[in-house]
Structure formats: C-alpha cells, structure tokens
C-alpha cells in the first residue's frame, strides 16, 4: 500500500489535488480491527473555479499517463483499486481539513479522524456503515465530546441516538 500512497502524494505535489485523506474501510482499520474490503477510498480536495462543475479528468489523465489502468470506478494504482471521492459536502470537507497526519511504513499520509468517520457513516447510513459505526462504538475508540459536536453541527444527533437505541 505504501507505493499506492506515494503515487497519491505525487498527485498533491503536482497540484492536481489540494489535499487528500484516506477514508472508508481502510481509514477505519487505522483505529479498529480489520474488516474485509477490496478498495481504497481517497477523499480529495480539489481546486475548483467558482461556478464550474468539478472534473476528475486531470487526475485520471495524469494517472493514465503513468500507465495506471481503470476498472469501472476505480484506478488500479500499484495493485490496489483506488476510488477518488471529491469532498462532496461540508461534513466531508471538514473531515478532510481535520484529517490526521500519519506514516504508513516510511511514507507520510493523512487519514480521516474516527469521529468524522462515524459521522459520515451515520450520514450515509448503508448497512455496512451501521456495522462499522457499531464497531467504533464498541471499541470505544472515539472522543465522544468531539463526535457530539460534529453530530450537532451537521444535524445528525437524532439519527445517531436512534441508531444507538438499537444496540
């Protein structure tokens, strides 16, 4: 995975993205136990001109130029299917902004913090999100005060409390 991260870091160095952070199941694995997944989600912040629609083409063109192949919505980067997800709302923008710098093997990278991961799971609320959110709660790997602040800010408290009632 280190080589994959190095390629993503190059995207930032080339200014094709302003910033990025690992999200999804792989980000969760930085904090809780392993769960099966087959792709690597990368949340990205892009430089967008006001009023223009975003396009991932510059990123894809650069990767194609490096010889990386596309498979449906993924790009195979050094053996890993990577999905680039532009931060699509205020919650994901804030999650990216507050992501945690870390090191994978010998390479710098950034990962979404657990409290934001849980808030995003509560927001998207698919079956796998509920399952993963439950694991975070059980593992007690979240700062409850920070999580509550995020949930209140993004109007997710009721949804979270209803979810917790089912546990």
């Amino acid at each position: 995975m280190e080589k994959t991260i190095q390629v993503i870091n190059q995207l930032k160095e080339e200014k094709l993205i302003l910033d990025y952070a690992i999200g999804g199941a792989i980000a969760s694995m930085f904090y809780i136990e392993v769960a099966t997944t087959f792709d690597l989600d990368i949340f990205i912040k892009m430089n967008i001109e006001k009023g223009k629609l975003i396009s991932l083409s510059p990123i894809y063109d650069w990767l194609k130029g490096k010889g990386y192949l596309f498979e449906k919505e993924h790009v195979m980067i050094e053996g890993i299917p990577v999905q680039f997800i532009p931060s699509y709302n205020e919650l994901t923008e804030e999650a990216l902004l507050n992501s945690k710098s870390t090191i994978y093997e010998d390479t710098n990278t950034k990962v979404i913090r657990p409290e934001y991961l849980v808030a995003i799971m509560i927001d998207t609320f698919r079956a796998k999100d509920k399952e993963r959110a439950l694991k975070f709660i059980e593992a007690q790997e979240i700062n409850d005060k920070l999580l509550q602040t995020i949930l209140v800010k993004y109007n997710l408290t009721e949804k979270y409390n209803n979810f917790k009632k089912l546990l």
Partner: peptide, 20 residues
C-alpha cells in the same frame, strides 16, 4: 477485539490480504 484493534496498520493490511 480491542487487542486486534491495536495492531499496527501494516500488520492489519497483511491480515486484510488473507481475508480478501
């Protein structure tokens, strides 16, 4: 489960490959 959560991420990725 708590102990498993504490494994280094590099170790977790090795486990992930086996799970896949």
């Amino acid at each position: 489960h708590k102990e498993k959560s504490k494994l280094p991420i590099e170790e977790k990725i090795k486990i992930l490959l086996k799970l896949q």
